[in-house]
Simulated scan of single mutants.
Amino acid sequence: MKYTLLTFILYLLPFSLDHQHTYASTVEYPPSPISFQIDMQNWDSIDESLPRKSTFTVIDVESGMSFDVQRRAGSGHADVQPLTKKDTKIMKAIYNGTWSWHRRAVLILAHDSSLIPASMHGMPHGAGALQNGFPGHFCIHFAGSTTHRTGKSDISHHVMILKAAGRIDEYMNNLPSSQLLNVFLVTIKNGDQGLAEKISISKHRNIKRELNKIEKIEAMQWSILQTKETDSSSSLVKEIPVEVKLFIKDRGPVKTNLTFTLVRASPISPWKVNIDPFLSSVK
């Protein structure tokens, strides 16, 4: 039954992603022989419904690939391990054969057949107990999750959770300029070209080709130098200075100060980020 349900979910997943303009706390799909729902659940309830030693299926939203994991530990979020060597192999394939801290949008298939939006990274760390060929564990965050180090929500995971839930467009379209810029930089850090394209503008006709440059970025930090949000109700253009530190493949560390220009078509339109100055620094 589990594999029949999983096959059906993977079949419908592209259709659900194509209709992300519909938002609700619970997204229900038309009646079908096998029904399921995407259910945004808070970490407190997840901590109880997916206790330590429980197993569940992780579905990568972007690729549709899935693998099984076991929760081993974690407070504030789930510390999990791939269940078998086969699951480890699938997870590594999702990350194109290289372990990475990049966050990815995932859906958790629970035993009650609900789908829970979440975010994972792909970097083994810490201890591991299963004979699965995975050197440690990795983290899965849910709505309301926090990190061990800061005790606060991780913005990179937060963005991916909203993507998995089908709420990312609504979220980004309603952000003030400086917060949208921060989310844009998060999408670059995560290597998510699709999300970056949604909120970008460029003088280049082929923006997808330009965004391929972000594949060269191996690590990234930034500081938005303007701390106060000063969008006026009528402003259509905003310039925001940012200090950016990059580690670029085959080039090494790069530190630069950039001024990002954000524009919108009208006072009620969403902001967009001009990506050209940033991508010029990634050569």
Rank of each mutant, 00 (worst) to 15 (best):
F184S: 04
D192Y: 10
L162E: 08
L162N: 05
H141W: 01
G122D: 00
I140S: 04
F134S: 09
K152E: 05
N190F: 01
P82N: 07
K86N: 12
K152C: 08
I116L: 05
L162M: 13
L107C: 07
D87E: 11
K189M: 10
R72E: 14
Q131L: 09
K89Y: 08
L195I: 15
I161T: 10
A143K: 11
N96R: 08
F134I: 12
I168D: 04
G133H: 06
A110H: 14
M91D: 03
Q179F: 10
G97T: 13
A165F: 10
H111F: 05
G133C: 09
I116G: 00
N174G: 14
Q193R: 12
G74D: 07
Q131Y: 08
A73L: 11
G136D: 06
H121D: 04
A118F: 06
M160F: 06
T84H: 05
I90H: 03
M91Q: 13
I90N: 05
K163R: 14
F138Y: 13
K86Q: 14
N132D: 14
T150L: 14
T187Q: 03
L130W: 12
P176I: 15
T147N: 03
Q70S: 13
S177R: 09
G126T: 06
D87L: 01
L175Y: 06
A164W: 05
A93K: 12
